[in-house]
Design a protein around this nucleic acid. Structure first.
Lengths: 193, 193
DNA sequence: GTCTATAATTCGATAGAC
DNA sequence: GTCTATCGAATTATAGAC
């Protein structure tokens, strides 16, 4: 048994696996879960479709591997309290401009239950933890995190998926100027009711 | 030629057509465009699959007919200027709670280009017109409309599609209290940059 | 108007040679 | 590790009987 504990030796198939994952992200991001076919992904990666099955078992396993995503949220306790909203939206925009994994998740989450569950885990857990960590009113931390996710995902959905003209045209700085105060309020202000 | 101009005489097939459209909305809303099959829709409507083809030509035609949607935005010029955000979000929530057409559009727009185009038309045209009508800074009217659509669709996406727990749990009044000030700012306040 | 039968594709997944 | 061949199932869409 020479397996299970050799992180040092790169397998020869690692390049193939990486090519498959990259092609899978592209296809899932562009076409969603159902329309992205294993055959097309394999063709993009210049390998045989059966290799995809061999490495990832089935289509769901491939998606699970391709849709791994970490928001990489910064430590909000180290941010000046008045600039939390700006830091957050700036981070989100830079995090997913140029990484199509989020687009793949967004498109797939609309129709695939597994993808929706992953989206719940990512946004609920990671944002809730970040929001709860810096301590505004623990009783409403989950609500605040949900609202941040709603505004953030709405921006991504309209800008990258539906591509509403004004949302596509705006520069990132314009978006930040508009949305930062919204997130700031969701994070720090006391509800009115 | 007795056709083309008899809006008075109800065809005997109208009940069938209505049943098909209702079943189509249900399926498209629950499963998205690709996974909703004509066979399943026909079975729900208790008719033969070929009838769907006969009435609507093909799957895209069926979706186009089923996804007809009007936001029915109120006349914003008749609203007290300080309550625009609240009126808008309250209207949105009541408009689509209980009408699955929006859910069908949201799910389908993620993967179907035609559905995305329809979503652009609805939200860009209808909201832009409503925003432009009451006259805050015409130069940024399109941006404001886009931001309203982003926050609104993000709410719908997280509450009805992805079903983030906090967004599902909140009551409509809680949502209104949180989101109304956001829309109010997008509609009426001057950008900071 | 309604249904049967089926054409024509396409897909995920498997078996097995090399 | 890689590929060929193919199965079995599901889909949209069509042709045509009644």
């Amino acid at each position: 048994m020479t397996a299970a504990s050799e992180p040092a030796r790169p397998r020869r198939s690692d390049a193939t696996r990486a090519a498959i994952l990259q092609a899978a992200r592209d296809r899932f991001a562009a076409e969603g879960y159902e329309r992205a076919t294993i055959r097309a992904i394999a063709a993009d990666a210049r390998i045989d479709p059966s290799m995809v099955m061999r490495y990832y078992g089935n289509k769901e396993g491939l998606f699970a591997a391709a849709a791994e995503f970490d928001l990489r949220l910064p430590d909000l306790t180290a941010v000046p309290p008045g600039r939390l909203g700006e830091v957050l939206i700036r981070h989100f925009l830079s995090r997913w401009e140029g990484d199509e994994t989020l687009a793949a998740l967004l498109r797939a989450a609309s129709t695939n239950p597994g993808a929706a569950e992953r989206m719940r885990d990512i946004f609920a857990d990671q944002i809730t933890a970040a929001v709860a960590a810096f301590g505004t009113d623990p009783a409403t931390a989950a609500q605040r995190a949900g609202l941040v996710a709603a505004q953030t995902l709405g921006l991504a959905f309209t800008r990258y998926i539906v591509q509403l003209p004004p949302m596509v045209t705006m520069t990132t700085e314009e978006l930040i100027a508009w949305v930062a105060p919204t997130l700031q309020r969701y994070l720090t202000e006391v509800p009115e009711n």
